[in-house]
Design a protein around this nucleic acid. Sequence first.
DNA 1: TTGTAAGCGTTATCAT
DNA 2: ATGATAACGCTTACAA
Lengths: 335, 335
Amino acid sequence: MVTISDIAAALGVTPSTVSRALSGSPRVKEETRIAVERMAAEMGYERNIVASNLRKGRSDIVGIIVPRIHRNFFSNVIGGAESILEAAGYCVLICQTHERFDAEVKALRTLRNNQVAGVLMSHAIGSDNGKHIQEVLGDRIPLVQFDRVFSDLPGAKVVSNNFEGAYAATKHLVEQGYRRIGTLAGYMNSEAYAARLEGYRQALRDCGLPVDESLVHYDTIVRETGFDAGLKAIEAGCDALYSAGDFSALGAIEAARSKGLRIPEEFGIVGTANEAFTSLMTPKMSSLALNPFEMGRQAAQAFLSGEEGTVVVPMELKVRESSSRNEQQNLSTYA
Amino acid sequence: MVTISDIAAALGVTPSTVSRALSGSPRVKEETRIAVERMAAEMGYERNIVASNLRKGRSDIVGIIVPRIHRNFFSNVIGGAESILEAAGYCVLICQTHERFDAEVKALRTLRNNQVAGVLMSHAIGSDNGKHIQEVLGDRIPLVQFDRVFSDLPGAKVVSNNFEGAYAATKHLVEQGYRRIGTLAGYMNSEAYAARLEGYRQALRDCGLPVDESLVHYDTIVRETGFDAGLKAIEAGCDALYSAGDFSALGAIEAARSKGLRIPEEFGIVGTANEAFTSLMTPKMSSLALNPFEMGRQAAQAFLSGEEGTVVVPMELKVRESSSRNEQQNLSTYA
DNA sequence: TTGTAAGCGTTATCAT
DNA sequence: ATGATAACGCTTACAA
């Protein structure tokens, strides 16, 4: 492996000069810089990042921690963040927590011990406050939270307008004529889900419908639990559900089918996240779309700029067949 | 930040002893080890991995390079590899190439410059030989290729039995009574696709059907191009397609629909990869499933063991509605 | 069993 | 504009 000392020796200068030339310091003669660069290329030099990091006390790695990379939402956030960070000369270390608290702590330690320049993260469902995050990261490593955030932690945050989104989704169901609307609310230790639940409630109130707490189903974020909650909702007389997740909404659709209910005529559903399958299944599922790529971009930008505010990225309701009793709205094929 | 020297000072020993104690060397008295460990915990010591890596000339990071993390296949490979590597004390650095050659080279350099302990990768469609891989990695960094492999590169490989899988898929179409079967073959610079094409051809031959090269559509791996190729296939009189990818198969289904063909009665389709949407859409799409989690495990294990052979992970044909003219086979709901 | 000392490759602080 | 020197925190011969 060729080092700056090798280049220095070959050129009859010192390592310091080579280092300066290579890192674009202004304190080096133009002609020396050119000579160094040529020699470096010729000898096939590549900077030893590990050594550089040790000396500088930080690396060019930005860590991203997500519950699961295969979720459309998270892989798109990563894509958005990558697009910004790569252009800024960083590389990205991705960790999955699989929604487990211990895996999250381990990921944080790994990143910290690798001296990452910063951490972008969306916490696991299993963790209900951010103490461990602050403890591991300290105040040397900048943190940007996205989607699932602990608002009492310092640092930048990127969130969706969950309240408004869920409000719009619920109101849409009311406008389609559904009258007993339940919700698959998700985990209340995540502020995103709590905000969606509030949006759901407020929409019902504003539409003059009663808010029946027995129609709120917590912890129903995956397909299987969505199925069970769907059954219960149907027994309780629901004619529609707003689900804070798409997979749980899918489960609920399967529950409605198993009870012989026609969708959307007898049972309406709106999910959340706009997973790819929602527009491919039959009936096409309505979903409250997040804007993950943009959230990733914003998170990366917040890291780069060091600004600590909260960025709100708007959601968009995709109305499809599962909630459209109204003929006209069934026409779009791809939406 | 507390270092081994701080611990050493606090205990009245030297840094070497602390280092040895902490890294589990046998050359240290049991009682010293205990004292060191207690003091380390008390002072909140965490090993500086960067310094350790510099000294040792390698890191505990294993790089994984994939075309796109959001593809079900790749995210599951990553999951499988992670499950093994994490248990062995490694952490995982994930890079996406977005199928671009230049991004692949950049990812390789990034990993090499970060002194990763090894690289697991599936090359981008855009690269048609492995020269750049070998050039960047040299022979110091072990390479394990999976799924898309260059067989002339040294190192371990993990592949599917693509020939046999495509053979089974094609034969299945013949058995369902389809007689003019085309294929969306994919990119021939990937050996995986080339093997699938051969399996398709051999199945036709073995079934006594002609192999018509005009029914082979290359470079048709995404939804849009699958749609176009589907149209062409239909015009050429095809009554079925074996597609080397699921997204292109989806496009072909949309093409058949746009021509008013009923599926599977008038047009049959089998895709490849068993993406999540295949079992959620209508009609449910038959697909030749890969076994990505197992491939990831095998790739990680190959890295750990250092064995350089080729591991073959079997594929499994999931017969669903899109290729079942046969009533009985339509019954399964989830499969 | 422990201490000594050198060095991994880079960069920052001096001085020249 | 360049050189000398030290240091980042850790590991590992070698010596004791």
